[in-house]
Amino acid sequence: MRLMFLFSMIAFLADQASKYWVVHVMEIWKRPDMLPVIPPVLNFSYGENRGINFGLFASDNDVMRWVLIGLAVVICVAVVFWMRKRRQPLIVHASAGFLIGGALGNVVDRMWYGYVLDFLNTSCCGWVNPTVYNVADVFIVVGALGMIFFANEGKDDPKKGRKKGA
């Protein structure tokens, strides 16, 4: 569990530090166009996401903001309880931590700003991606994939006479 909390703190702090640097120090919000970082693949472009991924369910309604905050917190709590009840490899603890830290990074944005600060844009070879995302989103995706691919669900542990991870 300590490993999960360590990785959640790493993800949370990396997300918040990157957002602070790009949005408040670099003031990317003042730029009308994209700022090439690793042209043409990675660009910075300011975005305010009031919905979930790709702006789905976006709304200026304050109720939706709090619904999304509540949903993220419930998911984080569910992951913690799921991890407590199962014996999992270290990579799953790290993955769960990434997912939780990323989700809480976006929760803090919603609480402070009313939306999630996004600034990463990946485009390539003449195709310009219209969406932006942030470091928290990367941690959420990596964490979820790690939990899906490396969890020990359903594998028997013959030494204990029960399912491994239970």
Rank of each mutant, 00 (worst) to 15 (best):
F44G: 06
S45Q: 14
Y46K: 14
E48I: 05
N49W: 02
R50H: 15
R50T: 15
G51T: 08
I52T: 13
I52R: 00
N53G: 15
F54Q: 08
F54T: 11
F57A: 12
A58R: 01
A58Y: 01
A58M: 04
D60V: 09
D60K: 12
D62H: 03
D62Y: 04
D62C: 00
V63G: 03
V63P: 00
M64I: 12
M64S: 11
V67D: 00
L68D: 09
L68Q: 05
L68A: 01
I69A: 09
I69P: 02
L71T: 09
A72E: 06
A72M: 08
V73Y: 09
V74G: 10
I75P: 07
V77K: 03
A78Q: 02
A78P: 10
V80T: 00
F81M: 10
F81N: 12
W82M: 13
W82Y: 14
M83A: 14
R84D: 02
K85F: 04
K85T: 08
R86K: 14
R86P: 04
R86W: 04
R86Q: 13
R86A: 11
R87K: 14
Q88L: 11
P89D: 02
L90D: 13
V92M: 06
H93K: 14
A94H: 05
S95H: 11
S95V: 04
A96Q: 07
A96V: 01
G97M: 09
F98T: 01
F98V: 00
L99P: 10
I100G: 14
G101H: 05
G101M: 09
G102C: 07
A103N: 13
L104G: 11
N106V: 05
V107Y: 13
V107P: 13
V108R: 11
V108E: 08
R110H: 06
M111F: 15
M111H: 05
W112P: 00
W112V: 15
Y113P: 07
Y113V: 07
G114Y: 01
Y115K: 01
L117F: 00
D118Y: 10
F119S: 04
L120K: 05
L120R: 08
N121E: 08
T122R: 00
T122Y: 03
C124W: 11
C125A: 06
C125L: 11
G126V: 07
G126S: 06
G126R: 01
G126K: 05
W127G: 03
V128S: 11
V128T: 15
N129V: 06
N129L: 03
T131M: 08
V132M: 03
V132N: 06
N134S: 02
N134Q: 06
V135M: 15
V135L: 14
A136M: 02
D137V: 09
V138L: 14
V138Q: 06
F139N: 03
F139Y: 14
F139M: 03
I140W: 11
V141D: 07
V142L: 15
G143T: 00
A144G: 14
A144E: 14
G146W: 10
